[in-house]
């Protein structure tokens, strides 16, 4: 990695901090899941942190974020309160959605975080509509829509790309290509070959592919894409190549992946890689980063404690928030 001149040391430490926060948070979730404190499906973002953090660093507060069910990383990177995220995962009244959405459906309108969506591809038409609202109201907000390689084959992806391009809507379609949809490798699901970003060509959506393990590359590419979108040139497609280090969900023992492939990707772990860059190239001290590590670990412990001590939603919550009155 080259030294990036446009980033202050503080900014860079912040990127490290956020990635580390996601990692530690996810590890805590895994622990809580084993203890039965988190139920349902739990999809961890471990290994992919550079993407959420790199993108979030390039966004403006008014921009919208929508994502899929593997959403904790995007939520934390966007600045959602880890305590309220954790409380949501614990199914507590203090959760972002009072415990009614759970891990796969995080929302925080105050951060323009417009949802995790657990139907593969389902968030893409919605992102297109948020972008339509932004264009219609002349708000200059961009919508970032994260999705996985599995969603490429859903009709909703194609419908959304087409409409966004046709109407020049400000959407950044952000493909997190971790090579697998559950246990099935992309080579066995996608006929378009490995140059997946070219999926944009057919709809005249400009596209790029980048290294999803490099937080600075993600940030930079996102900034450039957003710049283009903000000038009302319509949507953009970014494909970041990445890898999930854990199973698809906690229920997945990952028996379908080659161990040498896994080892190759683990060697590119975005967090130690960036840490090394910070100490060796950006001359940030070990002590400073250790201090960050400690703070982050405390923050996650505090989030878990907050969730644990929070009450469950009252029985009346069952019937609340279905329809607006």
């Amino acid at each position: 990695m080259q030294l990036k001149e446009d980033l202050s040391k503080t900014d860079m430490v912040h990127l490290y901090r956020q990635m580390h926060l996601v990692r530690v948070f996810e590890e805590k979730c895994a622990e809580a899941y084993m203890l039965g404190k988190i139920r349902g499906f739990l999809h961890l973002y471990i290994g992919e942190e550079a993407i959420a953090v790199g993108v979030a660093a390039a966004l403006q507060p008014q921009d919208y974020v929508v994502t899929h069910y593997r959403d904790h990383g995007h939520a934390l990177a966007r600045g959602l309160d880890p305590r309220r995220v954790m409380a949501e995962l614990y199914g507590r009244a203090t959760g972002l959605s009072h415990g009614k959405g759970g891990s796969m459906h995080l929302f925080d309108v105050n951060k323009n975080f417009m949802g995790g969506y657990a139907i593969v591809g389902g968030q893409l038409p919605i992102a297109t509509g948020l972008a339509l609202a932004s264009q219609y109201l002349d708000e200059k907000r961009v919508v970032v829509a994260f999705f996985g390689d599995g969603a490429l084959n859903e009709g909703e992806f194609h419908e959304a790309m087409n409409l966004a391009s046709l109407w020049k809507l400000p959407v950044l379609f952000f493909l997190e290509n971790n090579l697998y949809g559950m246990g099935t490798h992309i080579d066995r699901t996608y006929a378009g070959g490995r140059d997946v970003y070219k999926a944009g060509d057919h709809y005249r959506v400009p596209a790029r592919h980048i290294d999803g393990m490099d937080v600075l590359a993600v940030r930079q590419a996102t900034r450039e894409a957003l710049e283009r979108i903000r000038h009302w040139e319509g949507p953009f497609l970014l494909e970041a190549l990445t890898y999930r280090f854990r199973g698809h969900s906690m229920a997945d023992p990952v028996e379908y992946r080659d161990k040498t492939e896994e080892a190759r990707w683990h060697a590119r772990d975005p967090i130690p890689t960036f840490r090394k860059y910070l100490t060796e190239t950006a001359h940030i001290s070990e002590e400073q980063l250790e201090q960050v590590d400690v703070e982050v670990e405390q923050e996650v412990e505090e989030a878990a404690r907050f969730a644990d001590e929070s009450p469950e939603p009252g029985p009346s919550a069952l019937w609340e928030d279905i329809s607006a009155t």
């Binding site: 038409p125 297109t128 948020l130 609202a133 109201l137 909703e156 959304a160 409409l163």
Partner: peptide
């Protein structure tokens, strides 16, 4: 054409973008 929008024959994105636009402050 801003208020009355001919859409492609793509029902999912017609409704889905309606949902998104509604979330974004419009009444589609």
């Amino acid at each position: 054409p801003k208020r009355v929008r001919d859409a492609p024959i793509a029902e999912s994105v017609i409704v889905g973008s309606g949902v998104g636009a509604a979330m974004g402050g419009l009444h589609p």
